[in-house]
Simulated assay, not measured.
Amino acid sequence: MAAIAPRLPGVRQRRKAARPHELLEAALTLFVEKGLAATRAEEVAKLAGVSKGTLYLYYPSKDELFKAVVRAYLTQVIAEGHELVEQFEGNTSDLLHLLAHTWWSRVGASKASGLLVLIMAEARNFPELAQFYVDEVVAPSHALLARVVQRGIDRNEFRPMDVTSVVHALIAPIQFLILYRQCTSVCTANPVPLDPERFMTTQIELLLRGLEVRHPVIPNELPSPNT
C-alpha cells in the first residue's frame, strides 16, 4: 500500500495567511459589479473559494467586510501618501504631480475606483457606511492634500489662498475622471476618449498656474542718455 504523503504545514500556513486578501479581492469585485445591497455573503465566499462560515470567521457581517475593503484598498493608499509627503524633498508642484499619478496607478486605474461610484449610488441606503467612508477616505484625503497645499504656501511656492477651496478644486477633476470612465467603460464606442494620465497632468498644470507665486520680471534699467 502506497504511503500517504504528509501534509506540509508551511503550505497551509501560507494559504491561511493569504485568505484575508483573497476574501477582500472577491468582495471588492462583487461590490463594484453588483453593488453593496445586491452582494451576498455566499457569493463572496464562493468567489474566494471558501465556505460562508470561513468568511464570517474573518468578517462577521457585510458591513465589516465593506469596511475592510475600504481600509485595504483606499485608506492604506492615503496613509502611504502621508509617508511620501514626509519624505519628499523637492518642490511642491512636483509633489502634487507625483501624488496624483501614484493615486491613479494604485486606485484610479483599478477596480477600487468603483468604490466611489458605489458609495455615491447607495449612500442613502447605507448612511452608517457612507459616514464611515467620509471618515476613512474623504476626510483623510482632504487632510493629505491640505498638507501639501500648505507646504507650498509655507515655502513661498504657492500664493496664500483658502486651502480648503484649493483642495476641493484638486479633488473635483479626479472625481469627474472616475465617473466618466465608469460611464463610458460599457460603451462599444466613445467619440471623445479621455487619456487619464494626460487629463490629470493638464488639470494639475491649470491649477498650478493659479497657485504658483509669479515673481515679477524687472526689466533692465535703460542706459543713461549720457553714456
Rank of each mutant, 00 (worst) to 15 (best):
A3I: 03
I4N: 02
R7V: 08
L8A: 01
L8T: 06
P9D: 05
V11G: 05
Q13T: 09
R15H: 04
R15G: 02
A17L: 10
A17W: 08
A18S: 11
L24E: 03
A27V: 13
L30K: 02
F31N: 08
F31H: 12
V32H: 06
V32S: 02
E33G: 11
G35C: 01
A37W: 01
R40T: 09
A41R: 10
A45Y: 15
A45S: 07
K46P: 00
L47H: 05
V50I: 10
S51I: 10
K52N: 14
G53P: 05
G53E: 14
Y56N: 01
L57T: 14
Y59F: 10
Y59W: 04
S61I: 04
K62A: 09
K62D: 05
D63H: 12
V69Q: 10
V70R: 07
R71E: 12
A72H: 14
Y73P: 04
V77R: 08
A79I: 14
E80G: 12
E80N: 09
E80W: 07
F88G: 02
N91P: 07
T92G: 06
H97S: 08
H97K: 13
L99H: 04
A100L: 11
W103T: 11
W104H: 13
S105Q: 14
S105V: 15
R106Q: 15
K111T: 10
A112V: 11
A112F: 04
A112S: 08
S113P: 04
G114C: 03
L115K: 06
L116A: 05
I119W: 06
R124P: 00
R124D: 06
L129K: 11
Q131I: 08
F132Q: 00
V137S: 07
V137W: 05
V138Q: 12
A139R: 13
A139G: 00
L144S: 01
L145A: 03
L145M: 10
V148C: 04
R151G: 08
G152M: 10
I153P: 02
E157W: 10
R159Q: 09
M161G: 09
D162A: 15
D162V: 13
T164I: 02
V166M: 08
V166H: 03
V166N: 01
P173D: 03
I174K: 06
Q175K: 14
F176R: 12
L177C: 05
C183K: 13
C183L: 14
V186M: 09
A189M: 12
L194F: 06
L194S: 04
F199H: 03
T202I: 14
Q203M: 13
I204M: 04
E205V: 04
L207D: 04
L211T: 09
L211Q: 05
L211H: 04
V213F: 03
V213M: 13
R214W: 08
L222R: 11
S224Q: 05
